[in-house]
Every structure is written in C-alpha cells, then in structure tokens.
Amino acid sequence: MDKSKSYINSYLGGVLLGLLLLATFYINGRGLGASGAIKDSVAATVNQLAPEHAKESKYIGKLLSDGEKPLNSWLVFEVLGILAGSFISGALAGRLKWKTEHSPKISIRTRILFAGMGGVLFGIGSQLARGCTSGAALSGSAALGLSGFITMLCIFGSAYMFAWFFRKLWI
C-alpha cells in the first residue's frame, strides 16, 4: 500500500470512545487508564531488584502487601490490550512503521529528548493528580468527579500556557 488510509471521523471516534468508557464503567465500576499500569510495572521492577526497599516504600509498598503481584492488575492487561489494538488498527490502515515523527525544523535527537522529558513530567504529574488524561481527566470527568475536571482544566490550560515556549518543536 503506497498511501495509508485516512483516520476515522473525530466525532465518530469520540462516540465510540464514550461508549467503550460507559461499558467499562458498567462492567468494572471504574473507567479507562494508562499511567496506573506503568506504576504497577515500576512497583514490580523495584520489587524484583530490591524487595526490602520496595516493601518499605510508603508509595508503592501498598501494591506489594501480602505478597501481591502488582503485574496481576486490571490496568496492566488493559494496557497490553492498547498495544494490541493499536497494532491491529495501524496494520489495517497501513500505518505500521518504525519511525520518529518530528517537525522538519528539529532533529531526531531533539525530538527523542523532548519526548522523553515530556514522559518524565507526565509520570510525576500523573502520580500527584492520581491519574493521567485517561484515568483522571476523561474517566473522572465522565463520572462527574470534581478532581477529574480540575485535572483536565489544568492539563490543557498548562499545555496552552507553555505552547508558545515550545512552538519551535512543532510548527
């Protein structure tokens, strides 16, 4: 395939995502997530490398009480599903490709560096706010949680606030 198929309509995507979220609430009693699964894998890694240190941790120690295995979690399986689902969609649309996507004005190195730093900040912020864009902003807001709305407003507000400083990375 020389030309990849285009994306689906944004509003259709939104309705499908909303229905999926509703079904998740109905079945599981809580919404979608992403950063929580990474937290579980951090807990599992630290537990593997330094079990005493992990159990003493006031943060991830809670995930390890009574010999619990943090990787046996709903979110970890959901995130494995995200990778599989995205792969299927990308394969059907001809978008599977090893690639670093970046503005022509910046180098691949710059892009990778900022992508990594953005990830670090998202990691810290998502722990403070008890969820990321999926778990706090999307799922929390849909369930009418005040914290979800505040987190959503702060994420998008802050990105707009800093957009001017990082415009060279994108436009």
């Binding site: 730093m117 953005g118 990830g119 670090v120 900040l121 998202f122 990691g123 810290i124 912020g125 998502s126 722990q127 403070l128 706010a129 008890r130 990321c132 864009t133 505040i150 987190t151 959503m152 407003l153 702060c154 994420i155 998008f156 507000g157 802050s158 990105a159 707009y160 606030m161 800093f162 957009a163 990082f166």
Partner: peptide, 10 residues
C-alpha cells in the same frame, strides 16, 4: 499534577 502534566504534554 495537572500543570506538570500539561508541560509534559507540550
């Protein structure tokens, strides 16, 4: 947390 995530987002 939201403000830090927004910076990470951009």
């Amino acid at each position: 947390g939201g403000l830090i995530m927004g910076l990470g987002f951009i």
